[in-house]
């Protein structure tokens, strides 16, 4: 499994791509493949405040449910309506069209403690 190098990762299998004061968040290919067919995505409303490491939503497959944790603090700027309508997008394109939310970063938004692509790949291999 290759991980795009333009973003950071968490050990809970979220990815976050930082562009200036905005970040896009999704779940990794490893996460979608372990969950299996995703049938439902529950995302916060735009404007909701996010705290680093706290649950922001839920992805649900046929047999499992998984919390999504905020990799960075901020407020929700946009949610991916296409994913809410067709959750299979997360399975098909987790790093692209299957993104979940965009966040306006606030507070300490430094990527300290997040993994880069190589470190995440190493982490996944160890599982």
């Amino acid at each position: 499994m290759s991980q795009p190098a333009d973003r950071f990762y968490t050990k809970e299998h979220e990815w976050v791509k930082i562009e200036g004061q905005t970040a896009t968040v999704g779940i990794t290919d490893y996460a979608q493949s372990s969950l299996g067919d995703i049938v439902y995505v529950e995302l916060p409303a735009p404007g909701a405040a996010l705290e680093r490491g706290k649950p922001l939503g839920v992805v649900e497959s046929v047999k499992a449910v998984s919390d999504i944790y905020a990799p960075l603090p901020g407020t929700v700027a946009e949610v991916n309506a296409a994913v809410e309508d067709d959750p299979a997008l997360v399975n098909r394109d987790p790093f692209g069209e299957g993104w979940l939310i965009k966040v306006s970063l606030t507070g300490d938004a430094s990527p300290d403690g997040l993994l880069d692509a190589a470190a995440y790949a190493e982490f996944v291999r160890s599982l």
């Binding site: 049938v39 439902y40 649900e60 497959s61 046929v62 047999k63 499992a64 449910v65």
Partner: peptide, 8 residues
């Protein structure tokens, strides 16, 4: 079933 006790 994701709403139900045996998963959630």
């Amino acid at each position: 079933q994701g709403r139900e006790q045996h998963i959630r």
